[in-house]
Simulated assay, not measured.
Amino acid sequence: MDLDLWWLLLLPAFFLLGWLAARVDMRAVLTQAKSVPAGFFRGLDALVDDKTDVAARALAEVARAQQSSLELPMTLGKLYRKRGENDRAIRLHQSMLDSSDLPAEHRDSVLFELARDFRKAGLVDRAEEILLKLLDGNMALNARRELLNIYQQDRDWSKAIDTARALRSDAHSFQHEVAQFHCELAQGELFRSNLEVARDLVDKALHANRKCVRANLLKGDIAFTEERYEEAIDAWQGIENQNYEYLSMAAERLFDAYEKLGKPAEGIALLRGYQKTFPQLDLTDLLYQKIATYEGEARALEAARESVYARPTLSGVYRLIEAQMTGMSPEGRMDAEVARAVLQKHALRLLMHRCKCCNFRSRAFFWHCPACGEWESFTPNRSETH
């Protein structure tokens, strides 16, 4: 009984102590909040509303009033850069570097932001010069990442390869990117007909990333240029084991190789097999043209109808209507022409390649997404999406 009585007496005391602690914490919070300039909250509120011009003015006032703060001018510089006011960002960061109050341990951080200002302003050489000096400091990792972006922008693939290898870690091997850089170099050598050099670069790309579809496409292109058609076919068919979606990019190449070998029927059979196995491949137009050439319009129409029934698309229906127009009456042909024109208009508007990472859409295919910078992320088969 005595023990129960003590607990009953202690419970109100615990509640009282908790209430007092909460009051003390709340007073501390209110005291700190009152010490923050009102301009800071105005700037924060403007940022929430995406009014970057108002935010920049408010934060600039606070930065002038509290010159001892380092974080606020750094944030203000980033805001200037985001708004495209690169000159103001450069002047701000340069004035910070010229200040005797800047602690030595923060100098590299300000230099890094200045390099980003120069890059955004198009002064890439000056940005690179600063970043190279930061490679031995505490901003080395960020500097290398920024340098990698610069080298990709400038298409300096050799430096990009060296930088990516220096960035390699357990979290990110950069082998995917290195393979693409080798492919870029190989593409240039192939264009200049330096086939031996191009082949060596393709081998390096596949060594870096055996799943690199682009490397197999180039490997086949090199073999085709050297009239080694069977080797080209093997390279292009290997894409099926890497990423079958890219077979649509190799389809016409494969048929041309079979045609060079005098085996167009085998080429058509292979492509029809791909279309049945992978209905999402964009092969309807190509197959219609090749079958019409070698097997006649009737067989081509049959193949087009089979493809459209398996996977209806605007472009497939367009081809199906076109294939049947020759047998129509004049009135029916006019009606079909109107339907075909409407289909073509909507197909051209909707058919897009799409980046799987950022959903950027484009009528042109890119190996390197212009929006997010990811490699080999574009869908090779155009999709009919809004």
Score class of each variant (00 low, 15 high):
7 W>H: 10
10 L>H: 15
11 L>C: 14
22 A>H: 10
28 A>D: 07
29 V>P: 00
30 L>M: 14
33 A>T: 11
34 K>W: 05
43 G>M: 08
44 L>G: 08
48 V>S: 14
52 T>F: 06
58 A>D: 08
59 L>A: 01
65 A>T: 14
71 E>S: 15
77 G>T: 03
90 I>R: 04
97 L>E: 06
98 D>V: 12
100 S>R: 12
104 A>F: 15
118 F>I: 10
123 L>S: 15
128 E>A: 11
128 E>V: 13
133 K>P: 09
145 R>G: 02
146 E>F: 05
152 Q>M: 11
155 R>W: 01
165 R>D: 15
180 Q>C: 04
188 G>T: 00
197 V>K: 10
202 V>Q: 11
212 C>R: 00
212 C>Q: 07
228 R>H: 10
236 W>S: 00
238 G>K: 05
239 I>E: 02
240 E>S: 08
251 A>R: 07
254 L>I: 15
260 K>G: 00
262 G>D: 09
269 A>G: 10
270 L>P: 05
274 Y>H: 10
276 K>S: 14
278 F>G: 06
297 E>I: 06
301 L>W: 11
304 A>N: 02
309 Y>N: 12
309 Y>M: 14
311 R>A: 09
314 L>N: 03
321 I>T: 03
324 Q>L: 04
327 G>I: 05
338 V>F: 10
341 A>D: 14
348 L>T: 12
356 K>R: 07
372 C>F: 01
380 P>Y: 08
382 R>N: 06
